[in-house]
């Protein structure tokens, strides 16, 4: 299995390929699949929280909160993702640095915008220019996560808002007849039941989120698309393993990866639907009851 990769010019066939596929650059490529999965694992729950907050705000009886919820969902849903991504990552970064600048360098006398330059004092840089590279990458990644969460949170808010309205009204009335307060009825009756109605919309969002992960590449995060393009490009003899333009094969690999990921998601989501349907006052729930009674 382990060949001597120190002299690649002497290698041929399978040995060459084995050495080629285990270079440091390829290991970084394999690692970037983890980056994508990590993005999904972090972004999905945060978007759900944003979405829940947005939906609750949009239903609020307190007008400013309602306006905020409605504005959030309609503005974010109305603007193309890419515009949002490009805007937010620069705007958030400059906003954070500006805030830190105000706090840390109160006696700074130069303007922050000098012509084209955005200049804050060295202590306000985020991350500091002396920080190690992984911190810079981590910071870029978290900006990406935040942007993804804001964008997909708005979609989730709309889905959850609809789901909350889809819970049959008699359920809430019954809860109120039992003497529950509005808060209790919300948490004990509405929220547990709304998930089934939200699931089709949320599963759709999850699929979209998976497919949107290559936007990371647009934000300068070294994700799988970045590495596929970088590795697939023609390599001259300046490289240890020269080869022709192999981008087709690398992108084919990505295609298989994304298909597999969405297929697995579909299976898991189908199981989740079955589970949530149990005992619900819906067509699906009624069908299950009938099947069990037979």
């Amino acid at each position: 299995m382990f060949f001597n990769c120190s002299d690649p010019q002497m290698l041929a066939g399978l040995e060459w390929l084995a050495c080629y596929l285990t270079t440091g650059k390829h290991l970084a490529f394999y690692g970037s699949f983890g980056t994508v999965l990590l993005l999904l694992a972090i972004t999905a729950p945060i978007s759900l929280i944003f979405g829940f907050g947005g939906a609750v705000a949009a239903r609020s009886h307190f007008p400013p909160l309602r306006w905020f919820g409605k504005t959030y969902t309609s503005v974010v849903r109305g603007i193309p993702d890419i515009v949002f991504f490009l805007f937010f990552v620069i705007a958030l970064d400059q906003a954070f640095e500006w805030l830190r600048h105000k706090v840390k360098c109160p006696d700074w006398d130069q303007p922050i915008r000098q012509g084209n330059d955005f200049v804050v004092c060295a202590q306000a840089k985020l991350p500091l220019s002396s920080a190690p590279q992984w911190l810079h990458e981590g910071y870029g990644f978290s900006l990406a996560v935040l942007t993804f969460a804001i964008v997909y949170g708005a979609f989730a808010a709309n889905v959850l808002y609809g789901a909350m309205h889809a819970v049959p009204r008699p359920q809430i009335e019954t809860a109120e007849a039992y003497g529950m307060t509005r808060r209790q009825a919300f948490w004990r009756v509405l929220v547990p039941q709304m998930w089934l109605f939200a699931l089709p919309g949320l599963s759709n969002l999850w699929m979209l989120l998976i497919k949107a992960t290559p936007l990371l590449f647009l934000l300068g995060v070294e994700d799988i698309v970045y590495w596929a393009r970088e590795l697939g490009g023609m390599k001259t003899r300046a490289f240890t393993f020269p080869h022709a333009d192999w981008r087709l094969w690398y992108f084919l690999g990505l295609l298989v990866f994304y298909l597999a990921l969405t297929k697995i998601s579909e299976i898991v989501l189908a199981r989740l639907t079955t589970r949530l349907t149990h005992g619900q006052a819906t067509l699906g729930g009624a069908a299950m009851q009938k099947a069990a009674a037979r």
């Binding site: 270079t23 440091g24 650059k25 290991l27 970084a28 060295a122 500091l128 220019s129 002396s130 970088e230 490009g233 001259t236 300046a238 490289f239 240890t240 393993f241």
Partner: peptide, 22 residues
């Protein structure tokens, strides 16, 4: 504060490129 971050493209051999060890 003396760390200087050198920005390059990393896709322009032989000027600058990302070699096989990354």
């Amino acid at each position: 504060a003396d760390t200087v971050r050198m920005g390059t493209e990393g896709a322009y051999p032989p000027w600058n490129f990302v070699n096989d060890s990354g």
